[in-house]
Design a protein around this nucleic acid. Structure first.
Length: 856
DNA sequence: TCACAGTGACTTTTT
DNA sequence: GTCACTGTGA
């Protein structure tokens, strides 16, 4: 479909936004309002209809995932869009810095230090700091950089009044410059500084990019705003898209003010609101609206549902997270039997730690799932080790990588010696007036070698030999980063995309400078050239890829052996993970440039790992933050408890952010939405009683169905806030519920509705599973809690769930009640010793299908 | 320098 | 319950 046809499918506001020109444009795009469609259409439109050269368009997004999706969709409308610069902020900064590294005193071979690297570097720069404090300061430093504040900036005090902070920041910064590397914050902040100080560079950039678009603008931070400001000249067309209600990264420096005050900074701004929601059915949207309207500082807009009526969201209360996950898996499995694919489902939670329960449960029930985000693959020890070697190879000043690998496996080069080597290197560099990159840590090692103990001397020497051998395999030509210029007029057709499509968003990257020879910068031919060279080193005929190289690195440095031994001891998967790492490097060429590309790819792209053509049908487990920009037909938002979501100790402002996060979660759902909340939850191996999340009280009673034992606080507040909800809402008393549970929302909730809705000893096919009569009747009573006053009920509990009774639990099997007592909160608690040897505590008041009495 | 054991802290969220 | 840091002893 070309862009003209496409425009006919858009609504009037969308068309207006696509065709708008002249003034700066702020598109306020509500959730599910087709914002990506608008941006991609706009890119295509500018190229196809307005004659803008693709390379003059810069589109910046927040995540790489978003960048590749945008690129893909734009290309579908207009193939030339492949030459536009569609990048994340950080990848843009990285690209920019490669060409201007020297001007800010870094190596153009820099790699990016991640957060944990920052912590290590802080503690090395300021040795007196405890590890815990180092983490605190590292966090502060990155926050400072998000606000574009240098160590000597007077405004630093506003961030944190700690008098030590500026000095620590300074020490860190010095040390970081020594290494020639950068951290995440630098990727934005350094370009800003460069552009602010260098007028001709600024002028050049103004001519380089005529159009700049920013997606997810509500999540941009001050530094990113300044970058935008510096990049945009008088004639630059600036268009930003965002939704103030979806700003969820303030904790990391994102500044809602950026979007709220956009018009002030870009005079003459036109605002277009997109409020037609194409994603969710009306009841879901009205709950979203009901929640977010509790926030104060917002621009304000109401989404209009295009899809119209649908099932109401359902809220479930459980005893604990085992029931919660069991319920989710049951519901998903039931739906699957009726033909609903697993991939329709997403389970959302606040913190990554919560995924564990679901993973265990799903594994148990053989439901396929994939966890998004928390896959800390690149943070694993063995992977970081291998990466450290190659980082060190491309940047021999990289202190952290050096430290990481020089004594692994143990070579007798401990902390003390390492410090000496680093100091020596600094000394060496100070001697020579200008910084010659060759004067790295290897040279420092060689200088110190004679002074070391015999054993250390030999093994360090061996290490250095390995390093130089590996380095030689890469060749010694300087990496060619392609051209910084806009060269789209030169030889556009001669370009070859990188293989495997691994770098869709980077296509415009490896451009051919008209002056340089094509073979050098083109990824494919580069690989061929390298491969030919390398065949002498390797027996095989196939060209050497980065995968082969990394494998070689791991073998030669002894890391493979080391981790093999670890696997042996601890039964871990380190070697397998290394194998995985080789695989992911297969599409990069074996050269210094290839290594840098690969490292960039990893460093700037952690979230997008699961892109591995996930065609398999699986439930998505994902944190609320990670869902931004995604949608699912059926969504379950779990852990709706105070302390979990929202987290405890939130200020009013932060609470608003948590609420926006909740809003984001709700608006991911297309057809069905569920909330779950637990009365108790295991945290740090301890079981805590939980209060309901205050957000639940903000849901729209008219469009919500409530099941399970409602905590008193919820019952009280929900009804106070919303008045007497009456029988129609489903949020009323237990008795009114049972009547309508059969219908429910009708969707995906067959058998389970009866679990909650059935009262007393109603014949429930599920009951037959559970042994004796006394068991099922006790269970019936338990389930019918809302109808009975708590006091009466607890008397019953004491007689039914008494010490010595035999019980059965789905997960643990049979056991006996060994203890029964009341907690401080007045809850009746029993302890059960199971035959499997485990001891568990339960609150019988909340137990349902997974746990029951067996009769005597 | 390194291995081990005990202790304490920990859970936001991510480019 | 787990992990990682800290300090001690060889």
């Amino acid at each position: 479909m070309n862009i003209r046809e496409y425009l006919t499918k858009l609504n009037p506001e969308q068309v207006q936004a696509v065709q708008h020109e002249g003034s700066p444009l702020l598109i306020l795009a509500g959730a599910g309002s087709g914002k990506t469609s608008v941006i991609t259409a706009k890119i295509a439109y500018l190229i196809a209809e307005k004659g803008i050269r693709p390379s003059q368009i810069l589109a910046v997004t927040f995540t790489k995932k978003a960048a590749s999706e945008m690129m893909e969709r734009a290309i579908r409308l207009e193939p030339l869009a492949s030459k536009a610069q569609i990048r994340t902020f950080h990848s843009f900064g990285s690209w920019f810095l490669r060409f201007h590294a020297a001007e800010v005193g870094i190596s153009s071979n820099f790699t990016v230090y991640d957060d944990s690297d920052m912590v290590t570097l802080v503690s090395k720069a300021v040795p007196s700091l405890q590890k815990k404090n180092a983490a605190h300061y590292a966090h502060l430093i990155s926050l400072a950089k998000d606000y574009c504040l240098a160590w000597d900036s007077p405004e630093l005090a506003e961030l944190d009044s700690d008098p030590d902070f500026p000095e620590i920041y300074r020490q860190y910064e010095n040390r970081l410059r020594e290494t020639g590397n950068v951290d995440f914050g630098d990727l934005i902040m350094l370009p800003v500084i460069l552009l602010q100080e260098n007028e001709s560079l600024r002028a050049y950039m103004h001519s380089r990019f005529r159009v700049i678009m920013v997606d997810e603008y509500q999540d941009s931070n001050v530094a990113q705003f300044k970058l935008l400001q510096a990049l945009a000249g008088e004639d630059t067309y600036v268009c930003v898209v965002g939704d103030d209600d979806q700003s969820i990264y303030r904790f990391r420096g994102a500044e809602v003010q950026n979007i709220l005050t956009f018009q002030d900074h870009f005079p003459g701004t036109q605002i277009i609101k997109l409020v037609r929601n194409y994603r969710s059915v009306a009841p879901i949207l009205s709950n979203a609206d009901s929640v977010v309207s509790n926030n104060k500082g917002r621009l304000g807009k109401n989404l209009v549902s295009v899809r119209g009526e649908g099932g109401k969201p359902q809220l479930f209360f459980f005893a604990n997270q085992d029931e919660e996950s069991a319920f989710c898996s049951d519901m998903i499995r039931e739906a699957h039997k009726k033909g609903c694919p697993y991939s329709d489902w997403a389970i959302l939670y606040r913190t990554n730690a919560q995924s564990l329960n679901f993973e265990t449960e799903f594994m148990h029930k053989k439901i396929p799932y994939s966890v998004v985000g928390s896959l800390k693959f690149y943070e694993r020890e063995e992977v970081k080790d291998a990466l450290a070697v190659i980082s060190f190879l491309v940047n021999p000043r990289d202190e952290l990588s050096f430290r990481r690998i020089v004594n692994k496996p143990p070579r007798g080069v401990g902390d003390v010696t390492q410090d000496k080597i680093i100091a020596k290197a600094a000394e060496n560099r100070a001697d020579v007036e200008n910084l010659v990159p060759k004067l790295g840590l290897v040279e420092a090692c060689l200088d110190l070698l004679p002074s070391l103990p015999k054993k250390a001397r030999a093994s360090l020497k061996e290490f250095l030999d390995t390093v130089s051998e590996l380095s030689a395999m890469l060749g010694d030509e300087e990496p060619d980063f392609g051209s910084f210029e806009d060269d789209s007029d030169t030889t556009p057709d001669a370009r070859v995309d990188k293989p495997g499509g691994a770098e869709t968003a980077e296509v415009s990257d490896g451009k051919v400078d008209s002056a340089s020879v094509a073979e050098v910068s083109d990824a494919v031919s580069m690989r061929a050239v390298k491969g030919a060279k390398a065949t002498s080193l390797f027996a095989g005929d196939s060209p050497l890829t980065l995968a082969d190289f990394i494998e070689e690195v791991v073998k030669k440095t002894g890391l493979l052996e080391y981790h093999e031994a670890q696997d042996e001891i601890a039964g871990t998967q380190k070697v397998a993970n290394l194998q995985e790492l080789y695989n992911s490097a297969a599409f990069f060429d074996c050269s210094r440039k290839g290594l840098l590309d690969f490292l960039d790819h990893i460093e700037l792209d952690r979230a997008a790992e699961d892109n591995s053509d996930d065609t398999s049908d699986a439930v998505t487990l994902i944190t609320l933050h990670n869902t931004k920009g995604l949608e699912f037909p059926r969504v379950i938002i779990t852990g709706m408890e105070t302390g979990v979501f929202p987290r405890a100790d939130k200020t009013e402002d932060e609470l608003e952010e948590e609420r926006r996060l909740f809003y984001v979660g709700i608006t991911r759902a297309k057809d069905e939405l569920y909330f779950t909340s637990c009365a108790s939850r295991r945290l740090y191996g301890r079981t805590d009683f939980m209060e309901v999340s205050p957000f639940l009280m903000e849901l729209d009673a008219e469009n919500l169905e409530v099941y399970g034992r409602q905590p008193a606080a919820f019952r009280r507040n929900f009804q106070t806030l919303h008045g007497d909800v009456g029988s129609g809402s489903g949020a009323g008393s237990g008795s009114s519920r049972s009547g309508r549970s059969g219908t429910g929302s009708g969707a995906g909730f067959g058998k389970d509705a009866s679990r909650f809705g059935a009262s007393g000893s109603a014949a429930n096919s599920e009951n037959s599973r559970f042994s004796s009569g006394s068991g099922s009747s006790a269970r019936g009573r338990v389930l019918n809690t809302n109808a009975a006053a708590d006091d009466d009920f607890d008397d019953e509990l004491e007689t039914v769930w008494r010490k010595g009774k035999r019980v059965y639990h789905d997960d643990f099997g049979y056991g006996y009640i060994t203890n029964a007592m009341y907690s401080d909160e007045g809850m009746y608690i029993i302890t059960v010793a199971f035959e499997c040897g485990r001891k568990k505590s339960f609150m019988p008041a909340y137990q349902s299908a997974s746990f029951m009495l067996c009769g005597d």
